[in-house]
């Protein structure tokens, strides 16, 4: 029950932070050079469409009232109409968001599991050659420039080997077939997902491995590790039951801290692989001056990062009994 209260408090905090972000963005949209109206109304719209939209967004009202309209519309899910697609931004986002979550969370979770696992193993063999080679490898992975490695993946996996599709998330020719079954479609998505996921995996894997390794080395100096040795526990039990669970805690924290940074990488990956996610949509919207779409995507990404931070904090509390909410 105290956990519930903690979550409620955090949600309230998140709401305030989110509100501040919204407010700043709203006023930036108004302060930026040029006509604010032109940022929400597509120049190619018919007069009636324009009237309906300006009415809905309160665009003819004074700034203060407009701001209230803006907040109210946000909660009603009205982000405006995308210039490019001519459809409500909310609907575009609703379509894109699951794709992003699918790609991004799978990659982050897989790389966190693999990175902490390998980091744990090599920390036990410190000063050994395998440890050194893997550590340097992880350093290199961690600092690889993401768009570049994404292009190399494409060049190698899609062009040289020809094993994987060049772009996109599905093969339309399969999906239009009436007899295509759900497993076939899922497999198709997985096939498209391999290269972008490998890219994200590679970048994150290195950093999780490095953090886990140094965290393990630090944990190994703790008194309770000595106790475990004195108890005559076998080495693998000391490693897996005593050292690793404690060493994992700082890793969880750093996953939370680096989340915003990872999101950048997610957007880049989606862009290079034309993965129809929200990050690519944001880049696309900014390139094409599709202001309503850009604003909607950005706010949503901010909300997702905030929510993910909460998830990380709750997870931390679950892993560390010393944390009381």
């Amino acid at each position: 029950m105290s956990l519930k209260r903690y979550i409620i408090r955090r949600l309230a905090e998140m709401a305030i932070i989110f509100w501040i972000i919204q407010t700043v963005l709203f006023f930036l949209f108004h302060l930026a050079p040029g006509d604010p109206l032109s940022r929400m109304v597509d120049p190619g719209m018919t007069h009636e469409e324009e009237m309906i939209l300006t009415e809905q967004l309160g665009l003819r009202e004074p700034v203060g009232t407009q701001y209230l309209y803006f907040l109210g519309n946000f909660f009603r899910g009205r982000f405006g109409i995308s210039f490019h697609y001519g459809r409500p931004v909310a609907r575009i986002i609703a379509q894109r968001l699951p794709n992003t979550i699918l790609l991004f969370t799978t990659a982050v979770i897989l790389s966190a599991l693999a990175g902490t696992w390998l980091g744990k193993l090599i920390s036990w063999r410190k000063e050994n050659r395998t440890d050194k080679i893997i550590t340097v490898g992880a350093l290199v992975c961690h600092t690889l420039f993401l768009p570049w490695i994404a292009m190399l993946m494409l060049w190698f996996g899609a062009f040289k080997l020809g094993w994987f599709p060049v772009t996109g998330m599905i093969s339309p020719e399969l999906w239009i077939l009436p007899q295509a079954t759900a497993p076939e479609k899922a497999l198709d998505i997985a096939w498209h997902m391999i290269l972008p996921m490998a890219t994200l995996f590679l970048i994150h894997f290195g950093s999780y491995l490095l953090i886990m390794r140094s965290s393990m080395l630090e944990t190994l100096t703790e008194d309770y590790i000595f106790t475990a040795r004195a108890k005559g526990l076998p080495e693998n039990v000391i490693r897996d039951r005593h050292a690793a669970p404690n060493a994992r805690l700082p890793v969880v924290t750093s996953v939370g801290l680096s989340l915003a940074f990872s999101i950048n990488g997610g957007a880049l990956t989606e862009t290079v692989f034309s993965w129809p996610g929200i990050g690519r949509e944001l880049v696309f919207a900014v390139s094409n001056n599709d202001y309503p779409l850009a604003l909607g995507c950005f706010l949503l990404i901010a909300a997702v990062v905030l929510a993910a931070n909460l998830v990380v904090d709750v997870l931390y509390g679950y892993l560390d009994p010393r944390i009381r909410y």
Binding site: I17, F29, A32, A260, I263, L268, V286, A294, F298
Partner: peptide
């Protein structure tokens, strides 16, 4: 805390969109 949760690249992108 607030600034920390903002993905810097995307923030600069937004600035590019506006300015």
């Amino acid at each position: 805390d607030m600034i920390m949760v903002m993905p810097t690249l995307l923030v600069v992108l937004m600035a590019a969109a506006l300015f």
